[in-house]
Structure formats: structure tokens, C-alpha cells
């Protein structure tokens, strides 16, 4: 797959609540070639500290305007530096990376996401809907102000259920309970999850029981993002070695990998 290493111009940077950023960037190649499950490595500073670029999912990609969007949770040094970017400044971007989801020969998918994990599935929801696939989304967070990508997911989903741990918005409790209500009727051809280890274990269990085909969006530390460093290893379920999340993933069939 062709990978680009280019500059991208900051078109807008919006802070959402106290801990999230929505950044719209301009780069024709990423916008044109970004596909569901692809991610980019972003570096928005010149010096050697922090040294590595940071991986983020492509949330929106518009080949016509040449713009793409990232949704970022501010957690550490790199993301704090990104939060300080000004309009019209430039970042370097490497991408698109990762194996895109290209097989849409299905009729109904479920998306079970939590927190900033929602960023990973927006492009999937959009492209699936464009192909007439029904998209059922279960969006969860600890509290209402931590619901991420809500409007976009509402737009692209056939049905959306929101759950918060404290009940500020939507269902008061665990989104897994809501998913369970749909597992048999209407049922999903595939259930994708991102953003919570508990959700990943749940999807793996349901897959094991034969109730769904489960898929996990995985995140690990990364350096190169394209298979050179072997840093992003995740154990194969067979016990025979490791997959590389950046190149073999980031999406894996839940029965193929070991999660703890």
C-alpha cells in the first residue's frame, strides 16, 4: 500500500469538553486514500522530545475538499502539544496506515464503542451506510461530557443507543446490556468494538459462543506504524508468535488474538 509522508495544514482545531480535540487537517492524499480502520502518525512539533509521532484514527476523510479529521483525547505530552496547535500551522503526517476494512458483503453490523474509541468506527459507519448496510451503534462513556463523535455516529447509524455509567445521558448502565438485547434480534453479521478492554472481552466471548463474528480495534505502543520495528506485537491465539497491530491490524477477528 502506498504511504505518504507529508505536511498537513491545520484548518480548524476545536476543543470538546476538557479533554478532547477535534482537528481538521488538509492533505489531499490522506483525504483521498483514507479508508475505514486506517490511521495516521502525527507529529506536530519539530524537536526530538517527544521523539515519536502519535497514532490516531482517521475519523472523516473527504477526497473532494482534501480534508480529514481526527478526534484526539488529550492524555500526555504529545497530545498536549497537539492541543496547542494554531490554525494554519502545519503538522507532519504519515499514512494512511493499517489494513483497511474493505469487505462489505454483509447486511448488518454492530459497533460497540467507549470513550475516544468511538473515533475508530466513524468512517466505518459512514462507508457501511453508503453501501446500504444497517449500522447499529452502542456508544458509551463514563459520563455525558465524555461521549465522543456522538453527532457523526447519530448521522451514520441506522439506530444508536447511548449509555453512560452515571446516567447523565441515555441508558444508565453498561452498554453491553444494550447490545445483548439486539444479539438475537435483529442480530449482527459482525460486531466491532473499540475503546474498552471489558468490551473486547465481551465481544470475544460472544464470538466464542458463536453468537456473532467479533472484531477488535486494537491499540498498542507504536514507533514506525508500518511493520519495520516489530514493536506493536499482539499475541496470536494459536500461541505461535505475534501479529503486528500496525500492519496485520489494527482490526482483528477476536478469536485470532490474545487479550488480557
Amino acid at each position: 500500500m502506498k504511504v505518504f509522508y507529508e505536511k498537513a495544514k491545520v484548518i480548524s482545531l476545536k476543543r470538546i469538553g476538557d479533554s478532547y480535540l477535534e482537528i481538521v487537517l488538509e492533505n489531499r492524499n490522506i483525504a483521498r486514500w483514507g479508508r475505514p480502520a486506517n490511521f495516521v502518525l502525527i507529529k506536530g512539533w519539530e524537536n526530538y522530545d517527544p521523539l515519536l509521532a502519535r497514532p490516531f484514527d482517521i475519523v472523516q476523510a473527504d477526497g473532494e475538499t482534501g480534508r480529514f479529521m481526527l478526534v484526539i483525547k488529550v492524555t500526555g505530552r504529545g497530545t498536549r502539544l497537539l492541543a496547542k496547535l494554531e490554525d494554519k500551522s502545519e503538522v507532519s503526517v504519515i499514512g494512511p496506515l493499517g489494513k483497511a476494512i474493505e469487505d462489505f458483503s454483509i447486511s448488518r453490523i454492530g459497533l460497540l464503542v467507549r470513550g475516544v474509541g468511538a473515533a475508530a468506527v466513524v468512517l466505518l459507519a459512514e462507508k457501511a451506510r453508503e453501501r446500504g448496510i444497517e449500522v447499529y451503534t452502542f456508544l458509551s462513556a463514563s459520563t455525558g461530557s465524555r461521549l465522543v463523535c456522538r453527532e457523526l455516529l447519530e448521522k451514520y447509524s441506522t439506530e444508536i443507543e447511548i449509555a453512560t455509567d452515571d446516567g447523565t445521558i441515555g441508558y444508565h448502565g453498561d452498554a453491553r446490556e444494550r447490545v445483548s438485547a439486539y444479539l438475537d434480534e435483529p442480530g449482527f453479521d459482525r460486531l466491532y468494538t473499540c475503546g474498552s478492554r471489558r468490551f473486547a472481552r465481551f465481544v470475544k466471548d460472544m464470538d466464542k459462543q458463536g453468537r456473532i463474528e467479533g472484531y477488535l480495534f486494537l491499540e498498542t505502543y507504536m514507533a514506525c506504524g508500518m511493520g519495520d520495528c516489530h514493536g506493536c506485537a499482539v499475541g496470536k491465539a494459536t500461541g505461535e508468535g505475534y501479529y503486528l497491530v500496525c500492519k496485520d491490524g489494527p482490526v482483528f477477528r477476536s478469536s485470532d488474538v490474545v487479550i488480557d
Binding site: P50, T220, M222, C229, G231, A233, V234, G241, Y242
Partner: peptide
């Protein structure tokens, strides 16, 4: 050889540590 168990890399000031273990 399959290499070492993860995590295999971590960023450090102006550098990184790797413990890939030569898969």
C-alpha cells in the same frame, strides 16, 4: 524465533527503548 512478549517498545527522552527480541 517469535520474539519477546509485549510491550516491546517505549518512548524515552529523545529516544526509545526496544525489547523486540529478534523475531
Amino acid at each position: 524465533r517469535i520474539g519477546n512478549p509485549p510491550p516491546r517498545i517505549v518512548e524515552t527522552p529523545c529516544g526509545m527503548l526496544n525489547a523486540i527480541g529478534i523475531p
